[in-house]
Amino acid sequence: MSGVCLTLKDIQINLNGKPLLQINTCIEPGATLTVMGPSGIGKSSLLAYVAGFLSSDFSASGEIFLGDCCLNDLPAEQRGIGLLFQDPLLFPHLSVAQNLLFAVPRRVSHRRQQVDQALEAVGLKGFGDRDPATLSGGQKARVALQRLLLSQPKAVLLDEPFSRLDAHLRQEIRQHVFQTLQQAELPSILVTHDAEDAAASGGPVMTLG
C-alpha cells in the first residue's frame, strides 16, 4: 500500500470575518502534523474544514489536496478522510461487528471476513456480536480505530482522540494508533492540548496563537 500526501494550500479560516488561523503545509504518507494551541483558536474548525463539514458561521479559503486530487468540491463522504473523535462513538444500536461492517465499502469483496480479521488484529476475536456498551474503554478505542481503517481512508484527522482515556490506557492506545497509521502509510493531522501526544507522534508540531 503506498499512500499519498495531504496538502493544505494557503488555508485560512475566518470566524465572522476575522481570520482565525492560516496554514500552508504538506503532510507525507505515514507522517503526523500536530496542531496545538489554546481553545477557540480554530483547531477543530480546521479539521471540520478538511473533513468537509465546517459550520456556516465560519468561512474558509484555500485548497485541500490528496495527492493530485482537490477535495474542496467533494462532499464529506467522498473525500476519503477518516476522523477519530474524542469519544469512540461506536453506534449504540449496532453490534461491534455491525459497527465495523458499516464502514467497509460495498465494492470490497468478503466484507464479513474483513471485519473478522480486523477484530482479530486487535485481540478482540469473538467480540463481534457484543453490544458496544459492554466493551471497556480501551476496547472501544481499538474498535473505533479498526472501523476507521476499514473505511479505507487516504488521510486521517485526530481530534484529541486520547484526552478522555485514563492515564494508563492513554499511552498504550496512543502508541497503537500512531503505529497503525504509519504502517498504513496514512498522512494525519492531530489536534491536541497534550504535549506528550505531540512527542509521541514523532512528526512536526505547529503551535497556534
Binding site: G80, G82, R147, L148
Partner: peptide, 8 residues
C-alpha cells in the same frame, strides 16, 4: 459526521 467520514 462520523458516518460521513466512514464514506456513508
Amino acid at each position: 459526521q462520523l458516518a460521513a467520514t466512514l464514506g456513508a
